[in-house]
Structures are given as C-alpha cells and as structure tokens.
Design a protein around this nucleic acid. Structure first.
Ligand SMILES: Nc1ncnc2c1ncn2[C@@H]1O[C@H](COP(=O)(O)OP(=O)(O)OP(=O)(O)O)[C@@H](O)[C@H]1O
Length: 726
DNA sequence: CCTAGGCCCAGCAAT
DNA sequence: TGGGCCTAGG
C-alpha cells in the first residue's frame, strides 16, 4: 500500500499499530486522514479482518466515506463494518443486546423533542417545587447526569450541578428513566449508557466485543464524554490497540458533557501509550494560522503546539465591522458575488455563525444577490412536525408501548380528544400499569363514553397495522399518511405551508425507498433508528451553493473561503459564556472556525443587532478580534458605515453602549474626518492621484498600499501628505 | 369538553 | 419567530 502521500510522521502514526497511540495535533494537520489511512493499512498490510476493527467517527457521513474507501480496497461487505458514530454503533449493538439489560431489542429511540415531552409529563406528576425550571432545562441536566455516569451516581452528579434542586431533580430523573423503560425507549444518552451497562454487566457480551475488536480507533477524541471514555476503554481492554486522534484546542462540546481531560490524560490512562504530534498544517496558509494561533494562545490549560504551514504566503484574514446585521449580510453577499465573478465556486465558500438565528438575515441578503446556498443544522428534515407525526405512527407499529409517540398523534389529526381526556387516560394507565394504547381500549371504565371517544383512533391504528402487514416501508408510510387522515387534513388546510408539508411526507417516502434499496435487510426498526440518528451534517453535499452552518457544525470540515459572521461581544463570545466563566470554550470555537479556511478568511460583525422583541442592542467587536495583532489582518471596515449608526441613533432610541462600542471598533487613525478606505481615491503631494488597494495596521501604524500612476507605494497614513478625493 | 385565536414571553451550541 | 397559556365561543 502506498503511503507516499503522507509525511514521515503521519506515516509513523499510520503504521505504529500496536498498543495505545494518541495523535495530538492541531487543526488541519491530517488527523482524520491518518485515521482513515490507518484503517486501510490494517486491512491491506496487516491482514486484519474488517470484522475486527471498530472505528468511531464524528458524523455518520464521515463513517460512510470511510466505508467507501475501504470498499474500494477489499472484498468485504463494508456495511457490516463497525465504522460509525458512538451513538449509531451503540444503537446497532443494542438491537442485539438490549435484552441483556432488561429492554426489548426493538426499543424506540427518543430524540430531544420526545424526551423533552416525556420529561414535561413526568414533571407534571410531581409537586416538585421546580416551578421555575423548564422541561428543557431539566432535560439538559438529566443529559449531563447521564453523560457523567462514568464519574458516579446520579445523586452525586446532581448535587454538583444543582445543589438546591438536587432532590426533586433526582426524583424526576428516576421517574423519567422508569417511564422510558416502560415505554421500551431510550434517549440519545441511554444509547451510550446502556451499551456500557451491557459490557459491564454481561460477561459473555463483554467477552464477545473485547475479543472481536482487535483495533479500536476514535476520531475527535477531545470531545468524548465520560461514558464514551468508559466504552472506549472497555472495547479495547483485551487487545489494547487503541488509536485516538484529537486536538485539545478544538474541544467545543463541554456543554453537553464532553471532557477534554480524556485526551489530556491519555498517557496516564493507558499504559505504554505513545504520543505522536503532527505540526504541519496542510489546510491553511501561514497567515490564517497566525491569526488563529493569536486567538487560541490566550486560552488556559492547553498543550502548546507549533503549527506551521508550507504555504507561507496568502491573503491576510479580512476584518469588517458593519453598522447593522443587514449591512453585514450585504457585505458578505457582495464579497461572495465578487469572489464568484473572479472564478471561485459557490461550493468553496462557507458562512459560519454562532447561532442559528443569525442565518435568517444572511439568507435574505444572499437571496437578494441571487447567491445559491444551503443551510445546515437547525431544524433538520426529520425534526419537522409533519415528519415526526408520521414517524410517530410508524413507531407505534413497531412499539405499541411508546406512549410518547402515542401522545403525539392522539389528537393529530383532530379527533376531539383534548387535554382533559388525555389526563384521565394517563391517570388510568398509570394506576393500572398499562400503556396508553391499552388503557384507551378500556376507556369505558374511567370515563363515560370513553370507548366511543377512542374507538376512531384505535380503529385507525388497527387498520394501519393490518394494512401494513408485509408491506415495504415506503408503502407503510403511504398507508399511515392516508388512513390516519393526515393527508386529508393537509389537503383541506389552506395554509400555504400545507403543500410543502405534503411534499415533505413524499420526501420521507422517497428516503424510505432509498433506504430499502440500500439496506442489506431493511426493517422498519432499523429505518426508524437511522432516521432518529441522522443529522443534517450527514447530508452535506458537493453541490448546492454556499454553505451556511454553525461554527459547531463546521468542526472537521474545510472550505477555500470562510466567513465568520457576528464577531461581536454578547454574541460571540456569548453573553452567557462570559457570565459563567466559560470563555475558553468560545475561544476554541473561534479557533475551530478560523482553521476551517484554506485560503480566504473573513471575520465580520455588526455594531448593532436587532433583538427578537424588535429592539436593538449594540455590541463591541468580539474580544477575539482584539486578540489578533492588527498587522495580521486587513481591516475593511469603513468609517462611513460607523457614522451612519450615529445618524440612526439620533432618530431612534438612545443605546447605552453605543459610544463605547463605537470607540472600540473605530481604528484611531480614522477618527479624523475624510477617512481612507480601500478602493478610495487619494491625492499625494508628490505622487499625485492614486487608488488605495489595501490598508493594514491600526492607529499610527496604519499603512496603505496605494496605486499611483508611477507605481505602487506603501505609505503611513498618519504621516503621508494625503488628501481624500473620493 | 374541545378548539381557535390572541397575548406574552423567551435568546446558544446538538448526538 | 414561535411555543405555551388564557379566554371566549361552540
Ligand atoms: N501529508 C499530506 N499532504 C498533503 N495534504 C495533506 C496531508 N495530510 C493531510 N492533508 C490534507 O490536509 C487537510 C486536513 O486534513 P484532515 O482533515 O485530515 O486534518 P485534521 O487534523 O483532521 O483537521 P481538523 O482537526 O482541523 O479537523 C485535508 O484536506 C487533507 O487532505
């Protein structure tokens, strides 16, 4: 196998196959490439059967790509290979082993929506004195507890999280888990946790998996949580050939339980571990690296690295501060248009932001300029209401005990079953330890006319079940769509979104057909499993225009040109991160974003931003911008823009922070009127008229590159005898 | 007892 | 922007 395309040290990482190995290296150093090559190398050169390999990727898409690569190398049914995300692989194993820990193997996976709904229901049953705590918050706490299970009992973990509420929270935590178990359902965290229990509690299963996995590989190791850590440790305990790659500077998921200590302590945790450092960055040129390193250098507690790029030169990162988010969007759209006119492809460009809500304005401006784009993340296809409703019907076919799914469709379409009836049903079901569906069948015993009330629904469900017998999944969805009355409901809905919803359901049918065509042995169970674990990131395409996504989602990806929008205090870093002292994670997120760029990096922001209520806030430029030495970037901000806020200010309500903000983002030297700007025309006492090509530096150090008739000159703006012509 | 429409409030990131 | 809560009408 040819490994000539790798550097010496990368090759070493690929071929050092025995024992625990950590590749700790900065962004763009080829960690993922090394991991993929290593899998291929094991199979091709070391004659390891694909069956004996466990490789954990960060997205399903990355897993599929890796499988495709392996498929080209060996004659093996790669779909059976254990290459997947933690969640997918655990779900797959549990389909076989859940019964070892008291679940049924056809368990249902509840997504965030489902689990929030269930938590809400559980909370209603308790006079917990948690009035002010929302189900969403409680779900987050519960998730943290589950993800921290490697550290101890729920009670202890809860005390650390919330001293005051630990008791009621513990109660809810228990009740929620019991409900999940009764419903034969697992939430995302349970997938990991229950797989861990299988390994811990069942000797035979442990034997099987540890014997099987001679080689264990994990990508993005810095963002593993305590349960994932335990899983990795157990899976690799027998053969001890554990290979992990990661970058502590890219740890950005502590808020959902990831623990960077996993990577920092690797050498201590795994005896005889070898550590390989990759220092060369193959993705970005040096100027991008310089700026990114200026930001990450300020973080505490990190392993120092010496990244360098062979591409020593390239355009400096560009900074632009607009006066409003609309102007910011406009700037980005204009720049993209210009870049594309210059030959760049839309697909090579990404716009990254801290929060999904930022995308709306950006989209608006891109559309205005006729720029094709695709937004990833946020509301994914499978999270849409109509899709989730149809999926709930399918879930009930597979698992009639899934009360959460039942509650979702009990009155959708409308069947005259309201809150009061639902509450009575729930009470009755709980008192008699029945599933809601079972309880509904005996409704006469708890309310007058109960049977009559529920029989239409039960008949629909029974009808679907009979009709779906022996049918393909695509056909099942059609049956559900028709017989549930969902289609009719949408047809009679004159809301403009109804048509799109019908199309979405059609799309769901399509995806079921695609799944059936591809799967070895398609089952409804597996389809539902896949659907609940699919993310938008798995559908990233080569085509489709400019990519819009959050900074978090961009981890692991790369683009020729990257715009980072919303580089402002209170947004990035977020207000909460500052308040809660979690600034470093934001800083690392900034580092992740900047290092996605191969060639061109724009850092944009706005002095003001509209709030949901219609008001407006004004924010200083992000501190991360200030951490980059001025001479390392090119500042494209125009004084003119800044002044306009002043005008707008006077016509609208005053904003407390305005002057402060203005003072911070206006470079000093431009504080005098008649400002210089890139593209502007100036006159010099000696050289005559010229056009400003670029301005670098700040304050007295600002240098302009100006094209005069007699050639290009670099001049200090504060000293040169220049007048602005236009 | 159900439904629809109006009002009020909230704001991060995602498997 | 939307989801949760409240109210009036059916
Ligand atoms: N030896 C090499 N020669 C040339 N290009 C390389 C080499 N190694 C990696 N690359 C390229 O560098 C880029 C970054 O590689 P990769 O995504 O594997 O890095 P990474 O360390 O996983 O990055 P990150 O941590 O930022 O996600 C890819 O485009 C890859 O093809």
């Amino acid at each position: 196998m040819n490994l000539q395309h790798l550097s010496d040290v990368q090759r070493r990482a690929v071929t050092l196959v025995d024992g625990p190995v950590l590749v700790l290296a900065g962004a763009g150093s080829g960690k993922t490439s090394v991991l993929t090559n290593r899998v291929a190398y094991l199979i091709n050169e070391k004659n390891v059967s694909p069956y004996h390999i466990l490789a954990i990727t960060f997205t399903n898409k990355a897993a599929n790509e890796m499988k495709e690569r392996i498929a080209a190398l060996v004659d093996y049914d790669v779909s059976r290979m254990a290459i997947a995300t933690f969640h997918s692989i655990c779900a797959r194993f549990l389909r076989h082993d859940a019964e070892l820990i008291g679940y049924m193997n056809n368990f249902t996976i509840y997504d965030t929506d489902d689990s929030t709904a269930l938590i809400k229901k559980v909370m209603q049953n308790y006079d917990h004195g948690l009035g002010q705590l929302t189900p969403k918050y409680v779900r987050h706490v519960i998730s943290m507890v589950k993800n921290s299970s490697g550290y101890g009992e729920p009670e202890e973990v809860l005390k650390d999280i919330s001293e005051d509420f630990s008791e009621p929270l513990t109660q809810i935590y228990r009740a929620y888990n019991e409900a999940l178990h009764r419903e034969n359902a697992m939430d995302f965290d349970d997938l990991l946790l229950n797989m861990l229990r299988v390994l811990q509690e069942n000797q035979e299963a442990r034997e099987y998996y540890t014997e099987r996995f001679q080689y264990v590989l994990v990508d993005e190791y810095q963002d593993t949580n305590s349960v994932q850590y335990e899983l990795v440790k157990l899976f690799s305990e027998k053969h001890k050939n554990l290979f992990v790659v990661g970058d502590d500077d890219q740890s950005i998921y502590a808020w959902r339980g990831a623990d960077v200590r996993n990577i920092l302590n690797f050498e201590k945790d795994f005896k005889n571990a070898q550590v390989i450092k990759l220092e060369q960055n193959y993705r970005s040129h040096q100027r991008i690296l310089d700026a990114a390193n200026a930001v990450i250098r300020m973080a505490d507690a990190r392993k120092e690295k010496n990244p360098w790029s062979a591409k020593t030169d390239g355009p400096k990162p560009k900074v632009y501060t607009a006066y409003s988010e609309y102007a910011e969007g406009e700037f980005i759209a204009k720049e993209i248009s210009g870049l594309v006119r210059g030959g760049k492809k839309y697909e090579e460009i990404a716009v990254l932001y801290r929060t999904h809500t930022q995308s709306r304005v950006l989209e608006e401006k891109l559309r205005m300029y006729g720029i094709p784009y695709r937004v990833y993340g946020g509301m994914s296809f499978y999270a849409r209401k109509e899709i989730k409703d149809i999926v709930a019907y399918l879930t009930l076919l597979e698992n009639p005990m899934a009360d959460t799914a039942f509650l979702r469709i009990i009155n959708t379409p409308k069947r005259g079953i309201g809150n009061v009836t639902v509450n009575r049903l729930t009470e009755y079901a709980e008192a008699n330890r029945l599933s809601l569906m079972e309880a509904a069948a005996g409704a006469d015993s708890f309310m007058k006319g109960g049977t009559a009330k529920f029989s239409p629904l039960l008949e629909v469900l029974r009808g679907i079940e009979t009709a779906a017998e022996g049918k393909s999944i695509g056909e099942m969805i059609e049956i559900v769509f028709e017989r549930s009355g969902y289609h009719a409901m949408l047809l009679s809905d004159d809301d403009i979104t109804a048509e799109a919803k019908i199309e979405n359901v059609q799309e769901l049918i399509n995806s079921a057909r695609v799944y059936e065509a591809q799967a070895e042995e398609p089952t409804l169970e597996e389809f539902l499993s896949t659907v609940s674990l699919i993310t938008d990131m798995d559908t990233v395409e080569e085509e489709g225009g400019v990519t819009l996504m959050t900074l978090h989602s961009s981890k692991g990806l790369e683009f020729d040109t990257v715009f980072m929008a919303g580089m402002e205090e209170n947004l990035f870093p977020s207000k909460r991160s500052v308040e809660e002292g979690k600034l470093d994670e934001e800083r690392r997120l900034c580092y992740v974003g900047m290092t996605r760029a191969k060639n061109l990096l724009y850092l944009t922001g706005s002095a003001t931003r509209t709030m949901y209520s219609g008001g407006s806030s004004s924010n200083a430029p992000s501190r991360f911008l200030r951490d980059i030495p001025p001479e390392a970037v090119e500042n494209l901000s125009v004084r003119k823009d800044v002044k306009q806020i002043g005008h707008r200010e006077e016509t609208t309500k005053p904003r407390i922070n305005f002057f402060q903000a203005k003072a911070e983002f206006v470079p000093k030297a431009t504080a005098d009127p008649g400002s210089f700007r890139v593209g502007g025309v100036v006159e010099h006492g000696k050289f005559g008229k010229g056009t400003i090509l670029a301005i670098d530096g700040q304050g007295d150090q600002r240098v302009a590159r100006i094209a005069f008739a007699g050639g290009e000159k670099k001049l200090f703006l504060s000293f040169a005898p220049l007048t602005v012509i236009e």
